[in-house]
Design a protein around this nucleic acid. Structure first.
Lengths: 343, 343
DNA sequence: TGACTGTGCTAATACGTATTACTAGCGTAG
DNA sequence: CTACGCTAGTAATACGTATTAGCACAGTCA
């Protein structure tokens, strides 16, 4: 812009005082505030009102060290519609909590270009701390974050990375275990698992909650892969004599359910389906899968509050898992007598 | 945090050089860059690598004056689900364009608390410029923005506020006119209008496009109010002998359409419905209303690009209206002979 | 030998604000 | 009348970086 920004020096000149006086008028601490008599104070404030001057937050931050800004870092872009349903609930909670605590949000997303926290022109540090969002996360960067002095909190559980990672995650392990127990209570002894059992912590947690919970039940089929042809998956499930199948991916469950319906296989009478997690607007598919609900909004809120604790009070690392409520749904039922006889 | 941040001074000490040398190694201009010989350069970079030092963007900004941050200001909170569908497409476009241009976004949203641009603790200025989003907008603040030197662009047309307001809006006037013309071409002569005819520019634009376009057609009923009981609205429409009704609010159209269906009144055979605008996920209502589509994502992109032009090149005020494509839909049909006889 | 030209750095400064240290002027207690 | 304290400010400095100006030294040319 052509006209340079107003500075306190300009205000001082116009009011016939020094820059320091202007600063005192603006934000003198109680003991210093009364050093400026009302007349001078009013004269300065008049100039400020007339000019519409506001202090440059950047310079302010230089002195104070804090900005009241929280960074939200995602590797994937936050808004494109494919991701929007995933990110939006988290952002909702983050925004609300930030608002309550008097912080603004700096969005740092990585669309297309691989964006890194430690890059050449890292603007992340403009924020007082940051929230890490997203499924993938570079291990090296996490390690550097843990080692560094920049406050951050991850949304989603993370394994240690050269030290404990502060996070707010979902209690997937416990929720998965609860669902397995429920299936067993309904008589299911021949259970299958379709989903990955390695990779991101959130994925792994399902398996960790699942496998030990089986107890006496038989794991008659596993498919450690997602997005496979649903017909083949269904074939394998039936061939193995599974009465109940756990999916980690809603999309897989939907596809297999559709094929089953098409073939006249009844869910849950012939085959029970459990989905380990939920997805916004899952109702659109006309099926309420038995699953657990991920408290995304609450996770965002909690992570934000935790981050502010770390920023303001240098609070120690916390690791929190929020409960995932079980969604009853319509796809987990008792084992049919047909199956019991079969087995 | 307990451990102070690393500064260039620390790096300089560790590498046995001066702070200026570190700065040159980091980002010396071409002519100065080769003043540092490879050995020294490597020595400094080694220390930087080992310590994980990154320059403080705040200090950087102090010197350079630019931040590569764009503020996004909304009076209403951006994420809460009620608003999410409204804001998300704009944010999508804004985020994409910002990413391409190498800017980050500072989200300044107003949840609950009345948030003002000119307040005590204005962090907006941290950004190099800002995008104004949202339906309501304080006139005084807009005037001050126009008068000031802070670059901004509004999403949505705005009337002059002590000067022209830079904006990227939707061509609601033209699109509304086109829909009126279409209705007239289908024989409609008895037309009604349900919606506000004052208030925000975006609302007003519908009326501005509508009223003059009527030409010879009769405006048999107007209801300058929204969210009224749909039964009463329908009664009034029928009593007035309207064959086609224009709604500014999708919600009103949905409600009236539902009552009509319930009463056995066929749309569009007995009554045509046109909606002036669209809404994400309108399909969920099982009806494709004849309307026009608002290019929200494109508006966000265009506004961002315009803002960057203003920030970087001090470009003059631009005012752009993007075309709104007509959505054919199923609710505008030819006038039935019954009506023609009736009239 | 003395002036000149690079080379390879460092010193100094600016950016805008907050804050600490100080000072000039004046009244008053001792 | 000196010392002290109070009032109403101002001067100076720090924050961390970018950048300009400049300095010490070596080599070159006349």
């Amino acid at each position: 812009m052509v006209t340079r920004r107003l500075t306190q020096k300009d205000i001082a000149r116009l009011a016939g005082v020094s820059q320091a006086t202007v600063s005192f008028v603006l934000n003198g601490s109680p003991e210093n505030a009364n050093r400026i008599p009302p007349e001078t104070r009013e004269r300065v404030q008049k100039v400020i009102r007339e000019t519409g001057y506001v202090a440059d937050p950047v310079a302010r931050r230089m002195v104070k060290g804090l900005n009241r800004i929280l960074g939200v870092f995602t590797y994937e872009p936050a808004f494109p519609s494919a991701q929007a349903d995933f990110f939006t609930p988290f952002l909702l909670g983050i925004e609300e909590a930030a608002q309550e605590l008097g912080y603004d949000l700096l969005l740092l997303t990585g669309a297309g270009v691989k964006r890194r926290i430690f890059g050449d022109n890292v603007r992340l540090r403009l924020a007082d701390g940051c929230i890490i969002l997203g499924r993938q996360f570079d291990r090296d960067e996490l390690t550097r974050l843990v080692a560094g002095d920049f406050p951050f909190v991850a949304v989603g559980r993370r394994d240690d990375a050269g030290g404990p990672v502060p996070y707010v995650g979902g209690g997937y392990v416990a929720a998965t275990t609860a669902l397995v127990d429920r299936a067993k209570a309904l008589g299911h002894q021949r259970i299958a698992y379709v989903g990955l059992n390695e990779g991101a912590e959130s994925t792994l947690d399902r398996w960790i909650g699942f496998e030990p919970a089986l107890g006496g039940a038989d794991l008659v089929h596993t498919q450690f892969a997602v997005a496979q042809p649903p017909g083949e998956t269904l074939d394998a499930l039936l061939a193995a004599g599974a009465t109940c199948v756990f999916f980690t991916e809603l999309a897989d469950a939907i596809a297999v359910d559709a094929v089953a319906r098409h073939r006249g296989i009844s869910v849950p009478a012939d085959l029970s389906i459990v989905v380990l997690g939920n997805h916004i607007r899952a109702e659109e598919h006309g099926r309420r899968f038995t699953s657990f609900s991920i408290p995304r909004e609450a996770m965002g809120r909690a992570a934000t509050q935790m981050l502010v604790r770390r920023v303001e009070n240098d609070a120690p690392v916390e690791q929190v898992l929020l409960d995932c409520a079980i969604v009853e749904g319509d796809t987990l039922g008792p084992v049919s007598t047909k199956h019991i006889r079969n087995t």
